[in-house]
Design a protein around this nucleic acid. Structure first.
Length: 600
RNA sequence: GCCUCGAUAGCUCAGCUGGUAGAGCGAGCGAUUCGUAAUCGCUAGGUCCACGGUUCGAAUCCGUGUCGAGGCUCCA
């Protein structure tokens, strides 16, 4: 709230004349005041931070004599509702800095905010008995807040820096109508339902074990199948585009990472060094140095470039304990990685273009839509975090911008988001939980070729320095699988489904024929099970539905007679008896064409 | 890493203020042989996360640790 010029101190606002977003922000910000009012009543010594509106409501940060409990939220909410009933007017007033400093003398965070304000720009807002330092933007009175609910308590650093004290943040949801609030709560419920951790467990896709350690994913058979399909597919796409696949070790000597710069910039995020017989080894945090070794292993001519070296390589990153999550933020991961060694900028441009086109193809086939391209820039002044080489940054950033424009992709720019060695294009994905995650990146790197003194022989017979393009497309298999689970809600398209069809014999006497049908389908490498349990057909169908298996082939006397099966598609829909040969062709085509919707 | 909350059967969860545990689903066994989303019966299954403390007595209270969730910070 601090970087807006103080507005006219209005006496009355006609809420209906405002755009909805502005109206909502006013309601949310006002609700934060009411929350603070309630908090001060509960804890007279509460120190107040800030209370801004956010996308789904508001929050307010406090420093309190003790930790808040869920019961406190109930009490605070009741107190807030009392204030709503009182319809207290919000009244803005200008005060001098000196007055403000005196008024908030016991409020260190308010004083901190005040220090940044210009004299003449200091305003306060009063409603009922509560006054807050505030630049304005309220509704007329506390009766106009809308539908709200206090949601959760969280820790948050003052001004977002972990060097500052940590405050207690109370989050509230607020919408204009109770219907909208209910809709929001429904969305939260929906997000929980789609959560890859829940579905991953239910469908036995992956598991995490305390004994193996957090962030170390175990792919169960169903997950390993999905992974294998993704892997085969992307590798084939890469082969078609001239990539060469290599397999390199998961460790390297510490010296290698010192040279690449990882040791200096990222050792905190690396697993601790292993030492034996006087040698120091690291689990690699990235694959680049290994691929550079491959490039360096022989002298290359300009005629060979670009050289595209790819690997589904494991990477190991010591994510801090609080930030490991399910399969989407892990410590050991497999990246669909490649390094393209280019002769010059023109080649870099055309290679980056090729990568962007491959991405569009891949995300299209997977049916992904909630993603945006982000041009992530460095910071010339931060030589701690980024390699100090301004011309290199200029060149890289301009180049990426040109390619994005040329390919005609929409993108946005973000400062201070680059890799330590260069700018990048990030693919930002929105998860089911509504959070932004980086799926993959394309990076232009002038730095590592320098570190490793890479060279190729040019047309002129002289030695030249190549430029490296780092890129992923399907991200780490872990994060992509997590994403797909949420995107499909576990209903994978046929080609990715761990079990593609289950044959359901109606009675035990049909098992033999059912096995025959399964065997026939397996000749087309379809993944088929036969449900031979002594359950009723209805129960078998239900279980197959719950397991989200795309096709059910029900076989009884009539089907055995006709060399057919009654075909049922996941999600309902009995297609009646279909000859097995026809089913086989149908599934094979659906699989090979990677049709997104089963039965579609 | 920091703040808050949590951990009970394979899974989801109940167990009020201290008196050594329960349901549903699942599993095993038996019966049933069935035409498009759950057949019936029986049985087994627990170091109540771990370690320490308080207490005559701890799933329950306290401390430490581990793991998980939400948030903050970070994310090559």
């Amino acid at each position: 709230m601090e970087n807006r010029v103080s507005e006219a101190i209005e006496s009355h606002v006609d809420l209906n004349s405002l755009p909805k977003e502005e109206r909502l922000n006013r309601r949310r910000h006002s609700a934060a005041h009411v929350l603070a009012e309630a908090m001060v009543e509960l804890f007279p010594d509460a120190e107040l931070g800030i209370g801004p509106p956010i996308d789904t409501g508001f929050y307010y940060d406090f420093r309190l004599p003790r930790s808040l409990t869920p019961e406190d939220l109930t009490r605070l909410e009741e107190r807030m509702r009392k204030s709503v009933k009182g319809k207290h007017a919000f009244q803005m007033a200008s005060i001098t800095k000196a007055e403000a400093e005196q008024k908030w003398a016991k409020q260190p965070f308010k004083l901190d905010l005040l220090a940044d304000l210009e004299e003449g720009n200091v305003t306060q807002c009063t409603h009922a008995a509560f006054t807050d330092l505030c630049r304005g933007g309220h509704v007329n009175n506390t009766g106009e807040l809308g539908a709200f609910k206090l949601m959760s308590i969280a820790g948050a650093y003052w001004r977002g820096s972990e060097k500052n004290p940590q405050l207690q943040r109370v989050y509230g949801a607020l919408f204009e109508t109770s219907e909208e609030l209910a809709e929001y709560e429904h969305q939260l419920e929906e997000a929980r339902r789609r959560d890859h951790r829940r579905i991953g467990k239910e469908l036995k896709i992956f598991e995490l074990f305390e004994n193996i350690g957090p962030g170390h994913v175990v792919w169960l058979p169903a997950g390993a199948t999905i992974r294998r399909e993704l892997q085969r597919w992307i590798e084939d796409l890469e082969i078609e585009r001239g990539y060469q696949h290599v397999i390199t070790p998961n460790v390297g000597k510490r010296e290698l990472y010192v040279r690449s710069g990882h040791w200096e910039h990222y050792q905190d995020a690396m697993y601790p060094v292993m030492e034996r017989e006087g040698e120091e080894y690291c689990l690699r945090p990235m694959n680049c140095p290994h691929h550079i070794m491959v490039f360096e292993s022989e002298l290359h001519s300009y005629r060979e470039l670009p050289i595209r070296i790819a690997e589904l390589g494991n990477m190991h990153r010591w994510e801090k304990s609080g930030q490991v999550t399910g399969m989407s933020r892990v410590r050991i991961m497999t990246l669909n990685d490649a390094h393209i060694f280019c002769a010059d900028e023109a080649m870099v441009e055309s290679e980056v273009e090729g990568v962007l086109q491959l991405m569009e193809h891949v995300y299209g086939v997977l049916g992904l839509k909630n993603y945006r391209y982000r041009l992530s820039l460095g910071d010339r002044n931060n030589t701690e975090k980024y390699v100090d080489n301004p011309p290199m940054w200029d060149m890289g950033e301009n180049l990426l911008r040109r390619v994005l424009n040329k390919v005609g992709l929409e993108y946005y720019e973000a400062a201070d988001e680059a890799a330590f060695y260069g700018p990048k294009i990030d693919v930002q994905f929105q998860t089911a939980q509504g959070k932004d995650e980086t799926l993959v990146t394309v990076q232009v790197d002038f730095h590592l070729p320098n570190q490793f003194q890479l060279e190729y022989i040019g047309e002129d017979g002289g030695r030249h320095r190549p430029i490296i393009v780092h890129r992923g497309v399907i991200s780490t298999l872990e994060r992509m699988t997590a994403l797909l689970i949420e995107e499909y809600e576990g209903n994978f398209p046929l080609w990715l489904s761990p079990v593609q069809a289950v044959v359901i014999p109606i009675a035990d006497r049909h098992i033999e024929y059912a096995e025959e049908v399964a065997k026939q389908l397996r000749t087309a490498r379809l993944r088929v099970e036969v449900d031979t349990r002594g359950e009723r057909m209805n129960a078998k169908i239900r279980d197959a539905q719950v397991r989200k298996i795309p096709y059910m082939l029900v076989v009884g006397d009539r089907e055995a007679e006709a060399k057919a099966a009654a075909l049922r598609v996941r999600g309902g829909g009995d297609l009646g008896a279909v000859p097995v040969t026809e089913i086989l062709e149908r599934l094979r085509r659906e699989r090979d064409e990677k049709v997104l919707t089963v039965g579609g």
